[in-house]
Design a binder for these strands. Structure first.
Lengths: 216, 216
DNA sequence: CTGCACGCCGATCTTGACCTCCACGATGTT
DNA sequence: AACATCGTGGAGGTCAAGATCGGCGTGCAG
């Protein structure tokens, strides 16, 4: 009655039933799914290749028959996660020409990303492998790419300098990113849409007046 | 001429000259300084206890005579780094009663923190040990504590609900945190004070109008 | 029925990092 | 000036985790 409902061995991640064989392509995507779950739940360092193999219901050698090593596996998942948020951000910015709606749509993208079932955002926003340059480059690229797209809008619509536009855009991305993460951790006191709308309002009030820099 | 100017053994971090003995208290702070340098430069996992000992110019056993283990050493440094930013944030908020100045002062705190020589902010904002609950708790506490103090001001001055105030405050902290980090990574195209003032302006424009929620 | 190919598994190797044991030299005392 | 004491140093143990090798079962062509 204390913990471990029925048969969990480690911490809530029970392996698949060790089913029979499977075609290569299918096995590969299943391995990717299992690896994502384990990396999301435990982080890179705490996740052992044994855990991933057990989670997939296979043995460790098959994992190495599909991926050269742990880092490659992680980078594959990280790449798809990074591309997802960047593409969604691009689509949100292109979905309208009204900047107020742009802000709202982009904020919704971040909140949806964080709220998605798989939790892939943890690879991007809470990675524990930033010492690896390949990982660092991809993680930073999410912020810089999203910010760059936003900065284009800011620059063209306000005439601010490049560096100022970039910094403002990075601020907005940071606001979206960490507020969404802590909204999720907060446990849903506020609806996802309400939270996104609240922070979108904050962001819009912040940038809507530029480039006039002075008022009190 | 390629690399390793004169005598560096690993990667640009040359050890101290293996000087003689030292009183315990002094040795301890020297070990903490050396450990901070190594952890900041390489992250937790990539940093070996040998590296820290070499950096301090002592042998490994003396390290274990001062700290029970690697994690304890890291947590000691992390605690001081977390307390530093939290205390500075508190002081900035208490330094004035004008909310516009409060925002500017708090923003300056984050930029100064990130720009400080030792780079201790990397332990807080870029830790690679978030899988450890002790570390995760401390890292998250920085954001939640700072946000909580800001949320108090927002709540009392606007009458917004608790959850909304907290979320807005977290957004401001996130904005400060990631914009400061990327400003530093950007290489100083903008002055520290200019950057802080720019983002403070963005933040102030965002929150100054609450709680009236509707305008276009 | 028999040989072959394919995918899979148990058991093992190796590396690397955290963490301690025996010798040495400096310091304070008589 | 000689000796006891204590801190220091190099070398080694342990263990976890990434990466790998021979054997097994299944399905199919001949």
């Amino acid at each position: 009655m204390t913990a471990g409902s029925t048969d969990t061995t480690s911490d809530g991640v029970n392996p698949r039933p060790r089913g029979g064989r499977m075609p290569r392509r299918e096995r590969r995507v299943q391995l990717l799914e299992s690896a994502l779950e384990v990396f999301v739940a435990q982080g890179y360092h705490a996740a052992a290749m044994d855990d991933i193999a057990d989670r997939a219901g296979v043995s460790k050698p098959v994992l190495y028959q599909h991926f050269p090593g742990k880092l490659d596996l992680y980078l594959a998942l990280l790449d798809t996660s990074c591309d997802l948020i960047i593409d969604n951000c691009r689509e949100a910015l292109a979905s309208t020409t009204d900047n107020r709606d742009r802000v709202a749509a982009t904020m919704k993208v971040f909140y949806s990303y964080v709220a998605s079932e798989e939790g892939a955002f943890r690879l991007v926003f809470e990675s524990d492998l930033t010492s690896e340059p390949d990982v660092r480059e991809r993680v930073d690229r999410v912020t810089t790419e999203c910010a760059s797209m936003i900065a284009d809008v800011i620059r063209t619509d306000t005439g601010l300098a490049d560096e100022a536009s970039e910094l403002l855009a990075v601020s907005l991305v940071g606001m979206a990113q960490v507020s969404a993460r802590f909204w999720l951790a907060g446990g849903g006191q506020i609806t996802q849409d309400d939270a996104a709308a609240l922070i979108a309002g904050l962001a819009w009030r912040g940038i809507r007046g530029y480039p006039m820099t002075d008022d009190h």
